[in-house]
Write a protein that binds this DNA or RNA. Structure first.
Lengths: 156, 156
DNA sequence: GTTAATACCGAGTAAATTAATAGGGATTAA
DNA sequence: TTAATCCCTATTAATTTACTCGGTATTAAC
C-alpha cells in the first residue's frame, strides 16, 4: 500500500517546476539536480506527465518543461494518477471497468471495502491543488531562511 | 498503491472465519478450500492475525481458529494493518516515528499530502467493522441463492 | 551551418519484493 | 496410538521496481 518513487519523485518534480517557473521553460537537468534525482529516471516520469497533459515541453537548446495549466487547475490526484496509474487499493472491475470482470462478483463483499478506500483516497488528492503546495513551499522556504543546507537525499 | 495478496486473502479468510463460526474452531484447511488459497500460504497470513490478537488458535485435532473478539469489535483497519503493516502511502517519519527522520523535513511539502491520504485511508477502514461485512455477506449469499457455482478463483 | 543544449525513445539490468512451496515439529481429541 | 491440526523456518520462482545506458531529434545561439 505504498506509492512508488514514480509518484514521490514525480510530485516533487512538478512542485519544483511550478515553484521555479518564471516565463521560461525549466530544463530537466535543473530539476534533477535540485531534487537529487537522476536525469534519466526523471525523463521517464516527466514523459508520463506530458502524456497526461500536465506539462508541456519545449524542445531544443534553452528548452525544458512548463506546466500545461495554471497550478490551481492541477490537482495532486491528476499528478499521482498520471505517474502511478489508478489509485485503487486492488485491481477490481467494480473500481475500474478496464479490469476483467470477477467471477466472484455476486458474492464478493470486500469490493465495498475497496470502493470506500478508493473513493476516500481520490477525494483527498483531488482536493489538494498544486497551487496549495506551491504556496506552502514558499512559506516553509521563507521560514527555513538562509540556515538551510542542500540535502537533496530524502526518504519520502 | 495496491494491497498485496496478504491483505486481500487475509481479509477474506477472516470474513470466512466469522461467517462460518458456530461455537467451534474452524480449520485452516476449510477456509483454504472455500477461498481457493493454499493452506501453507494461509498459515503465514493467519500467523500475523494471531500475533495481532485478532484470532485465537485451538491446537490439536478438531482444532482451528476462532475470532479473538466479537466481530463488531474488529475493524477492517485492524485486519489490514495486521496483514500489510501500516497503511501509509509512503515511509515517512511524519506518519510513523519508527521511520528514520528525513533530512529534508524542514522544507518538505509533500508530507502534508501523505498525511492527509494516510488519515483518510485509516479513517475509512477503522469505521468498517467485521460485523458489517458478515451481515453483507449473509445478505448477498441469500440473494445469490442456490444458483451459485463454486468459483473460488478471483481477481480482487 | 555548426555546435551545444536540450527533449525524446527504447532496451537492458540489478535489486527488492511478493507470492508462494516445501518439509518437518508440536499438540491434542478420538 | 493415530490422525488432524496448528506452528515454524527455509527456499524459490515470478514479478515489479528503480534505475542505467546509449542513442536520435530538435532548436537557440554563435
Amino acid at each position: 500500500m505504498k506509492l512508488t518513487t514514480k509518484g514521490r519523485y514525480g510530485l516533487r518534480a512538478v512542485i519544483d517546476l511550478a515553484v521555479n517557473y518564471e516565463n521560461e521553460a525549466v530544463a530537466l537537468s535543473q530539476i534533477a539536480e535540485r531534487q537529487g534525482i537522476s536525469v534519466n529516471y526523471l525523463e521517464q516520469l516527466i514523459a508520463k506527465l506530458k502524456k497526461s497533459g500536465i506539462v508541456d515541453s519545449v524542445r531544443g537548446a534553452q528548452g525544458g518543461y512548463v506546466l500545461a495549466m495554471p497550478p490551481e487547475e492541477i490537482s495532486v490526484g491528476d499528478i499521482l494518477r498520471a505517474l502511478e496509474g489508478d489509485l485503487n487499493p486492488v485491481d477490481c472491475y467494480e473500481l475500474n471497468s478496464n479490469e476483467p470482470p470477477c467471477s466472484n462478483a455476486d458474492t464478493c463483499v470486500t469490493k465495498y471495502v475497496w470502493k470506500r478506500i478508493s473513493d476516500s483516497i481520490n477525494a483527498v488528492v483531488n482536493e489538494i491543488k498544486l497551487s496549495d503546495l506551491v504556496a506552502e513551499s514558499r512559506r516553509v522556504q521563507a521560514e527555513a531562511g538562509s540556515t538551510q543546507v542542500n540535502q537533496p537525499k530524502q526518504t519520502c
